[in-house]
Nucleic acid binder design. Structure first.
Length: 231
DNA sequence: TGCCAGGCCGGGT
DNA sequence: ACCCGGCATGGC
C-alpha cells in the first residue's frame, strides 16, 4: 500500500475497490475539502477515549465534556479509581452527561471487565487483535457496536469503522445505502471497499459527524450547500 | 417551547 | 428478527 503525500495534500491511502469504493472515496475527499482535518478523538489518552465513548451514547459531546472534566478534577479518570468508587458517587460525578445512573453502571461494568479479564490493561485487551477484542467488548453490558468500534479505533488504534447516527443518516439521504441496511453491513461496506487504514477510518468517521452537525441534520432535507450534493 | 444529541438494553410481538 | 419505551442533561 502506498501512502500518498500527493499534491492534493491527502496523506491517506486512496485506493478503492470498484465503483463502490470510488464513490466512498469521492465522499471522503469532498468532506475533507469542506471541513478539513478533525483531529479526533478529543481525548488525552486511550482510557479517556473509552470513558467518553460510553458517556456520549445518545448525548451531545458538550455534555460529555463537562462530565469528563468533572471526573478529571475528582481524580476518577483512571482504571483504579473507577474500580474503587461507589456507583452512586460516580453517577453524581457524571451528572451533566445525562442517563447518569445508567452510565455509571456501564462504566463500572467496563472497568470490572478490564480488571477481571484483562489485568486492568487496555493494551492487553487490544493485543487480542481487532475481531477478538471486538467480540470481547460486545459482551460487556452497555457496550454496543458503535461504542466498541469507537474504543477499538480511537483508543486501540485498530482499523475498524465506526458507524453512528450521523453516518447512517447521511449515507441513506445521499442514496449510498438502502434504507433498511444495518450497522454491521455499513461497517463492512467501508472496511471491504477501502484500504484498511486507521488514519483514514479515523478521519472519515469524524468527517461524517462534521457533516451531520453542519448540514445533514434530522428534519432537514437535502440542501444546496451540502458538500455531498449530487454525489 | 419542544426537539435534539457521536446508543443500548430488555420486554414484547 | 424487528419494534418500542426508558434512560436525563444542556443547548438552541
Amino acid at each position: 500500500m502506498h501512502r500518498t503525500a500527493n499534491r492534493s495534500g491527502y496523506h491517506w491511502p486512496l485506493e478503492a475497490v470498484g465503483p463502490v469504493g470510488e464513490r466512498l472515496l469521492d465522499a471522503f475527499k469532498r468532506l475533507f475539502d469542506a471541513f478539513g482535518p478533525q483531529h479526533w478523538w478529543p481525548a488525552d489518552e486511550p482510557f479517556e477515549v473509552c470513558v467518553g465513548a460510553i458517556l456520549t451514547q445518545n448525548t451531545s459531546w458538550n455534555n460529555v465534556s463537562r462530565a469528563i472534566s468533572g471526573l478529571k478534577s475528582k481524580g476518577l479518570l483512571n482504571v483504579d479509581a473507577l474500580y474503587q468508587v461507589p456507583v452512586d458517587s460516580l453517577a453524581a460525578a457524571i451528572r451533566p452527561a445525562g442517563y447518569y445512573n445508567l452510565k455509571a453502571r456501564r462504566l463500572k461494568g467496563f472497568v470490572d471487565f478490564l480488571v477481571s479479564r484483562h489485568e486492568g490493561s487496555l493494551e492487553r485487551l487490544f493485543s487480542l487483535g481487532l475481531e477478538s477484542a471486538r467480540q470481547a467488548l460486545l459482551e460487556v453490558k452497555g457496550i454496543g457496536p458503535e461504542t466498541a468500534d469507537s474504543i477499538l479505533l480511537y483508543a486501540g488504534g485498530l482499523p475498524t469503522f465506526v458507524v453512528d447516527a450521523y453516518t447512517m443518516r447521511a449515507l441513506r439521504r445521499h442514496d449510498l445505502v438502502d434504507d433498511d441496511i444495518g450497522y454491521e453491513d455499513v461497517r463492512a461496506l467501508f472496511m471491504d471497499y477501502l484500504a484498511s487504514d486507521v488514519a483514514l477510518f479515523n478521519e472519515f468517521h469524524a468527517l461524517w459527524v462534521a457533516l451531520g452537525k453542519g448540514f445533514c441534520k434530522r428534519g432537514m432535507a437535502r440542501c444546496d450547500a451540502c458538500p455531498l450534493r449530487d454525489l
